[in-house]
Amino acid sequence: MSEIPLIQVRGLHKSFGKLEVLRGVSFEVKRGEVMAIIGPSGSGKSTLLRCLNFLEEYQAGEVLFDNTLVGYRDSAAGRRKLDSERNIRRIRARLGMVFQSFNLFPHKTVLENVIEGPVVVKGQPRAEAEAEARTLIARVGLTDKLDTYPSKLSGGQQQRAAIARALAMQPAAMLFDEPTSSLDPELVGEVLEVMQSLAADGMTMVVVTHEMGFARRVADRVMMMDEGEIVELTPPEQIFTKPESPRTAEFLRRVLH
């Protein structure tokens, strides 16, 4: 069982109207693997990530999570139908997601944000959820902010709270959509540290990022995307020292100045 990759993507196509954003993307993420996705803006990185938990519908190809097709049901006749909301929700609940703009619930405190998923989605008793939430919040270093509303937190603190919120669902994998891109430079480190410790604990992670240092240090493999396609997908040493594609080389030259 454990040889089957946790996430399998085959021939994924996605367009917004006439604009083709993903043109046949295929890759796999093994359990415990950390994959960084890099590439110029507009290359389809975020869209790809959002297809993994079906926040975006895709037109062709397939995304398999834990060997289950995400978002659709294929009939025996080969016709594809949208899956039931219940099945889609079940998969989403097992995939934690962290957003560029944090998206904490502003009308709830840090603690309330973190217990929201377990209590509402899983039906976990509140006291139990709170006890687990306190542990997670301690882990991201926000114990003194339990009862604080998001608007009173710095960007870095908000993002750490958002990570705790996603972890509270005990996800099988975590998706990060440019988690540090809207942070002031001095706050990036504290978020990356939390992510690095998650990786060290064996969490399966897919991270869309512009932090090349993080990708190089933490990722097992780095995917370079451009114009809706995978340009290359290799271990970090290789992509950062001798990239195969001139497009990768050009991109890295620009971001690493």
Binding site: M97, F105, R165
Partner: peptide, 16 residues
């Protein structure tokens, strides 16, 4: 309300 709010709710597995 920002679309990120419903994205976050959905990503936790919440229904409509």
């Amino acid at each position: 309300i920002d679309r990120g709010q419903s994205d976050a709710a959905k990503s936790l597995g919440m229904g409509y």
